[in-house]
Every structure is written in C-alpha cells, then in structure tokens.
Amino acid sequence: MKKITKDTYVQWFTDMSFWRRFEDKCRSLYLKQKIRGFLHLYNGEEAIPAGLTHAMDMSKDRIITAYRCHILSMAMGVDPKKIMAELFGKVTGTSHGMGGSMHIFSKEHRFYGGHGIVGGQIPLGAGVAFADNYFNRGAVTLTLMGDGAVRQGSLHETFNLAMTWKLPVVFICENNQYAMGTSVERTTNLQDIYKIGLSYDMPSAPVDGMDPVKVAEASYEAIDRARSSKGPTFLEIKTYRYRGHSMSDAEPYRNKDEIEQYKKQDPILKTRDLLLKNQWADESQLSIIEEQAKERVEECVRFAEDSDFPPLEQMYDLVYEQKNYPFWGRI
C-alpha cells in the first residue's frame, strides 16, 4: 500500500471536509425542495471512502454500492457538480436527471451505481468482478452494502458463487447499525456481521470505520488477496451515520446521547486534531481548506441551478440501445 504521509492526512481532511459540507448542503436544499425523492446522507461515514480509495488501484479498480452513494462516487473521481445536478434532476447530471440521489453512475470513473433495491447490487458487483476475471484484467471490484442488505438472500447466493469461482471482489458491509430504523440486534441472532463470511470460508474481519487508516489497511489486504486470484474477502466496517436513514426519518429508534458519543470519534475532527498535534498544519491553513470546501459546494449548487431540466424526448431515448424502438403510444 502507498505510504500514509502528512500529504495523505491533508488530502483526507480536504476531501472529508468537502464531503461533509456537500451532504449538509444537500440537506438544506432538500428542505427547500430543490432536491426531491429520497435523500440518504453520508455524514459520519466519511472515513470509509477516504480509506478505500487510498488502498485501491485508482487506474482500474471499481466500486458498486447501494443508495447512500454521493460520496463514494465522488471519491472515485466523479465531478461533484454533476452529482449535484443529478440531485436537482438536471440534464447535466451524472445520469442526465434519470436517476436521482440513489442512482449515481459513472462508467468513466468505474463507479457502477448507486442502487436503490437493498441487496440487489451484491450479485452485480460479483458480476463486474466475474468479467474482470473472464478477461484477466487484474482489476478488483469493491462491492458495498449496508447492514440491512446482509439479511437478503442475494448476499448468500453471491458469497457462495464468488467463493466457488474465486472472483476478484471485496465485499464490504458499511455497518452503521441501523437498517432504516431497525437496529442490527433486532434482526438477527448473529450480530457480528463479518461472521456471515466465515460460513463460506471467506476471509472476514471487522474494521473500525471511524478511522481511515484502519479502513485503508484492511481493504488493501483484501484487495491484494483478490488481485492475486485468492478470491473474495468480507469486511464489516463499523461506522455510524449522524443523520437519519433518509430525510423523512424522525429517528424514534435512537437517542441523542448515542449520536454525541459517536461524534466524539468523528473522522474529520480526529484528522484535524492529528494535523494540528503533529504541526503538519495550523489553524489558519485548516480554516482555508474549510472555506474552500464551502466555496466548492456553492459552485456545485450554482452549476445545478444554472443547468436545464432534460428535454421530454429523453424519457424515451435512454431506455433501449436500439434506435427507433417502437414504444407503445409514444407521446
């Protein structure tokens, strides 16, 4: 793995500050009804994409995830302006306004979505890895899911197939402890999610998801295993989301103390403290980074505001690769 240096921490602080700011802005834009549909925010989980992208080969590795997808796609290099435009439903969005918040995609950046059906993306991720194996490309696919998705049958069928065929895939559960409003302990007898992998003899481990270094180290080992044809790994990255499941969540299932406890381990705060403690940056430098994050987010909003909504005919144009498909009663 690349060495984790002062520059890495500065980059992490810069990225994570921007990501947090972006999601906070989405929240306020949702309340202003600029963003509609379902909106799932990533606040608190930022150490995961920071660590994963440090460990990945960013020239060829791939990511697929569920619907909490703005930040993971951004971490893969997708232009945040286009993501914001997608949330607005604008033609300049990542899917030209056809997907919305839950469905960010970028072929160019090897980001395979953005999937709204819980667990539906798990076999897709293994399939993306299947193709890399089929063509001997040496790329690895990181397949992310939440703690709710691990109770879907799709996970179990995919684990079995991926182990049988030794696919170059790393399965990652972002365990933020609540499947919407249902805590892990209420849904299972097996609360250590990583142990699910053990029943398929898949190397599996828990990871501290509040620390980008821990995420990077564990995922690098898993990616390396996948790349050297030794098959999949299952990582349970323990994290926490500060916001509700989605914007409509009044959070009756948890108390404020719990959230405050986790905020003490906040990856951005901890990175900030470390930069100051090691004298790798001073307050004023960090403030500049924070200001720049704010300005970049405003730039995204301006881009989205200034973009057009898609033309009516786009509704038909993107369904089939076939040109002139004879849609029933086309408008």
Partner: peptide
Amino acid sequence: LGFSGIGVGSAMN
C-alpha cells in the same frame, strides 16, 4: 438470483 445478477454485472463490464 445470484447467477442472474452476476450475469447482469458481467454485462456491465
């Protein structure tokens, strides 16, 4: 379920 999804995923790649 598993192999249909793997099929679709491989078609994306």
